[in-house]
Structures are given as C-alpha cells and as structure tokens.
C-alpha cells in the first residue's frame, strides 16, 4: 500500500485488499503472537483473580491535534479506564470504522501512534476489526477499544467508597485536552502551544497501589471534566465534596481560552489525569508518589470529602466565597459576548 493511496471500500470487504491492509500495515505495527494467528478471537493467558473489563469509542474531531491523535487517545483511554478499576491493563481490542477516502498515510500515523501507546502502557492489541463505510457515513475514522486487566490483590476502589475526611488528590492541570481540541477546530485560530494531556496512567496507579496506600476512589475525569466526575463520586458515596479554587492546577493559557469563551475548566475534558480519594493519613504519601510520576508533577490536594451537603460538590472560591459545582448539562457552548 502506497502512502499516497486512500482507503477504499475494498479494504473493508474481507477480501484481498483487507488482508493486504492487515498483513502490510496492522500486523507489523501491533505485532504479537495472538494477533499473528489471525483467529476469530484472541486466546490469552490470564493471571488468577478478579478481572476489569472496559470499552470506549472515539469519534474525536479533528482526528489530529496538538500532542496526539485519535489513535493514542483510543489506547490510553481504555488503558486508563481499566487502571481506574485498580487493575493492571493487559489486553486491548481495536475496532476501526473508516470512511472511504481516508489517506493511507493518515491511517498509518494513527496505527503507529496506537502501537506506540500500547507499548508505553505495556498492553497488547490482540484482536481487532476494520470496516470501511461510504463517504459521508462516518467522519474520517472512528475507533472502539475494549480491554481487560487484572485487579491488584486486595484492592477495592469504587466511586461509592468516598468517606468524610478523605483528601482529594488531582494528578495535574485540568482542561488541557478539551482546550487543545477546541484550539485545533476550524474557525478558532488560537495561536497556542496547548497540547492534549493524553497519557497512560496505569504505571502511576500501580506505584500508588504497590506502596500499600489505601485508595477509596480512583477516577479519570474525561468527558464532562472534573466537576462532573466529582458529582458522580459525591452521588455514588452519598457524601459531600468541598473543593478549594486556589488549589486547582490550571495552566495560564487554558485559563485564558476559558475566559475568552466563557468556559469553566471544571467541565472540560482531560485524557491523562486522575483523581484519587484517600484517607487523610495516606494523602501525603500518595501525593508524593503521583508527583514522582512523569505524568503527575503538577499533582495537588484540591479538596476533601465532608459529611455536610451529602451528594453535592461545593467550591470555596479564591475570594472566600462559596458556590455549588453541579454536573455538566449538555455541551458547553461558547458565549456570544
């Protein structure tokens, strides 16, 4: 397949073109024993214990943006969802739905970044599927990834386990991914070097759990942002959450774009951040471990769980005021003045 070719309906028909795409592009990049067998499914060794299983679909527009593309986003996303169950992700599947006419060179870049992301996370892409749909029936490429992992022994993390007194640790700056995507969209010509924060967090999670820290809740605040994730936790645990505005890490450029468009960074997506809710006596240790990780150097304690206002999240503002942080309703739309 030449780089200046485009993906055709033939590539998804299951015939020679499909096989050529698999053997020339996909297999060499994702190479592993299970995939090489080309069976209907992958047969994998699983350690004994409890399994975590997660799936997610990626339809991001544009497919290329500063700091990444739909490919590493799709791998990191599922890796992180499994990690947030307190598990070590092991095997991933990848389903590609491609709009005919996608340049082969774009597909190759996406596949290369998926392979690199899998390598960085230490997971194997062991099974997959490729479909090609007529022009206009999809938008360039959609990717579904599913994955399984094994839960670390004795670990029990859940959105329902937050208890009053827990400290809330955030692993770094918020809203980087959402603002990077927005800046890359047509019609908005921000000159910024804002990058997506897309990153695998499973190594960070492993370090925290290996240290024997008691983690009550682990979540990655993706769609809907930190505000929505914390509301889910407050509701799931029937506990109140208090956030400290002055402790929230937000990059200056992200703040600037949010000011301009009337967005609240609390509701903007992240793809490489986690929140950990831990008992107060473990908080300093967990913070230290997260800060030592390459994706956690801006980590901070941003709030605490309280027995007041159960089910609700409140923010103590920098000026000493107080306001509620509700769950995001619908899409944030840019304001007009």
């Amino acid at each position: 397949m030449k780089p200046d070719d485009t993906v055709l309906l033939d590539h998804g028909a299951g015939g020679k073109a499909s096989h050529a795409m698999f053997s020339e592009m996909i297999l060499p990049l994702f190479h592993n024993d299970q995939l090489a067998l080309q069976d209907d499914g992958a047969i994998c060794e699983m350690p004994a214990g409890r399994m975590a299983f997660s799936t997610d679909s990626y339809v991001v527009d544009p497919i290329f943006f500063n700091g990444g593309n739909i490919g590493d986003l799709a791998v990191n996303g599922t890796v992180n969802d499994i990690a947030m169950c307190g598990a070590q992700p092991l095997y991933i599947s990848a389903g590609l739905i491609i709009e005919e006419g996608l340049p082969i060179k774009d597909l190759r870049i996406i596949l290369e970044t998926m392979a690199q992301a899998a390598k960085n996370a230490g997971v194997k892409i062991v099974t997959g599927d490729t479909k090609v749909v007529p022009r206009g029936k999809a938008d360039k490429i959609f990717i579904n990834t599913s994955g399984v992992g094994i839960i670390f022994e004795g670990v029990n993390v859940s959105g329902s386990r937050a208890v009053p007194g827990d400290k809330i640790i955030l692993s770094g700056t918020i809203a980087d991914h959402g603002i990077a995507i927005l800046s890359a969209r047509e019609g908005l010509k921000f000159e910024s070097d804002l990058k997506t924060d897309s990153a695998p967090l499973n190594h960070m999670v492993k370090s925290i759990l290996d240290a024997g820290c008691d983690i009550h809740v682990l979540r990655d605040p993706t769609r809907g942002g930190l505000g929505t994730t914390l509301n889910e936790i407050a509701a799931g645990s029937h506990a109140g959450i208090t956030l400290f505005e002055s402790a929230l890490p937000v990059k200056g450029a992200v703040k600037g774009v949010c000011e301009l468009l009337g967005f609240d960074p609390l509701y903007i997506a992240n793809e490489g951040k986690l929140v950990a809710l831990v008992p107060e006596n473990h908080a300093a240790r967990v913070l230290e471990i997260i800060q030592a990780d390459q994706f956690g150097k801006d980590a901070a304690i941003i709030g605490e769980v309280t027995d007041r206002h159960p089910g609700k999240v409140f923010l103590e503002t920098a000026i000493g005021g107080r306001r509620m942080v509700d769950m995001l309703t619908g899409e944030q739309l840019p304001r007009i003045c």
């Binding site: 009337g262 609240d264 923010l315 103590e316 503002t317 920098a318 000026i319 000493g320 005021g321 107080r322 306001r323």
Partner: peptide, 12 residues
C-alpha cells in the same frame, strides 16, 4: 450574573 455566581460573591 455568571461572574457573581462563579466567584461566590453573594456568599460574602
């Protein structure tokens, strides 16, 4: 209106 809410001005 939004700024007043966001900064919790009513509460002070």
């Amino acid at each position: 209106t939004m700024a007043i809410f966001r900064h919790g001005i009513r509460s002070v």
